[in-house]
Amino acid sequence: MSERFRIMLYLVSALAFAAALRAAFAGLPDFGAYCGAYGPLVLESMQGMRHAQQGVAAVTFDYRGFDTLGEEFMLFAAVAGALLLLRRQESERFREPKDQAGDRAGIEPAPAVLGLGLLMFPFTLLLGIYVVLHGHLTPGGGFQGGVLLATAFYYVYLSGEYGDLLEVAAGDTVARFEAAGAAGFLLVGTVPLFTGHRYLQNVLPLGNMGEPFSAGTLPLLNCAVGIEVTAAFLLVISAFLRQVLLIRKGKHS
């Protein structure tokens, strides 16, 4: 199909599709005037039934916790898939990471970069842990905190210590953490089954609203997701870095 025909086909179809959807949107409630039953029911019931104050976390990990299980495993599948696609091929070899410029022997990160990395690493780590642990109280949660935690390790790479990062992620420790995070969520959900309850039912003590140990399983599930997401992003980042830095064509150097 020629470039021109394709673009014309696209534009004409886009116009028609837009007209159709414009007509469909007319039947939706006005922006800002939504009155569905779902949200209010959750917000009314979660305080009494779950001692939870954060609506999004309550929906994510309790009311619709099963969706989140699928979501967590989607990330898990993406990591497995990315590692499958980014494996070293038989025609490739590993080599030492070294500077592409010929006149430099090794890579010396500038002191400012190194210093900033050293500074940012612990703070980002702490912020990530905070966001994960308070996921059921304040904005954030396992997914957001996990991404922050992975970012902390990304600072290690940015400050030039990518050897360290690759070392951390190359072993099977991170992969085991990832599997443990994913399986942990699933297993927390099975605990109620032994007492004759439903899967993912929130049967732990509910505590006092607003405290770190409250809302039953919510903090636990947040931690499981946090571990999974951190490990998942570390694995993906290091897989891509390995491709760029270490893997080259040819059998042996």
């Binding site: 949200g39 609506g55 999004v56 929906v59 979501e71 989607m74 993406a78 898939g81 990315a82």
Partner: peptide, 28 residues
């Protein structure tokens, strides 16, 4: 009044979908 929390939870799921798919397409 607080807004609907359900759509926010759905959006988060969708963001994870986007991240997962992007990682795979980039790997390909």
């Amino acid at each position: 009044r607080p807004v609907d929390p359900v759509v926010q939870a759905l959006t988060m799921t969708d963001i994870v979908v986007g991240a997962a798919v992007s990682a795979l397409i980039l790997a390909c």
